[in-house]
Amino acid sequence: MFLQKIIEFTVLGVAVLVELLAGSIFFLYCPLAVLVVVYYSRADSFPAAMFDAVIAGTVIDLVTGRSELFSPFLLLIAIFAARIVLRREPDSLLECSLAGAAAAFGAVIAETVFAGTSGVLHFIAVAIFCCAAGALAMPVTVAALDGIGRLFGTELFMPERPASLDARRAARNRRVRLAADRRGRP
């Protein structure tokens, strides 16, 4: 648990730093913190991810000197959006992609509400681009952070399931055991 929290905050700190550097050097709005909090909303717990969102968002707004606080809301809306799409444990990377696209869409809506936009067409263009970027980036984030999680033995976003052949073999063994039990009954 303690190790999980240390890794979570380290990853979140690195994501915030990369987001700030990308914005500063390349003028690129690269909301990595969104992907990380969405990851931990499943890998850790939903309240823990909400806490991470509030802390990371406040730090981003403070460092960039924004006169109003909006990043925590952006992150919270993103994890709620991802939660709506991904209600159960994901089975495939496609589901991760959908969650990433939903989170990005939520973030774009929040950004439009808080920071304003210059027109409907601009909003649609940004929304399409961000959803595509989120759909591509989320599986990569899941793969990378699950790799780190496996390394340190912490909770994963997409836990490993037994292969289908193993599952069938286990089911057969169970059936054989049950049949043997029935036969053994008087």
């Binding site: 717990s45 309240p47 909400m50 806490f51 406040t58 403070l62 006169s67 109003e68 606080l69 925590p72």
Partner: peptide, 23 residues
């Protein structure tokens, strides 16, 4: 779980209310 969510909500409200002086 609800207690944790309420705590996060209070934290968010505090951050929102005191953001200007915090900044």
């Amino acid at each position: 779980r609800w207690l944790k969510i309420a705590a996060v909500g209070i934290l968010l409200l505090l951050a929102l209310a005191g953001y200007d002086s915090l900044r």
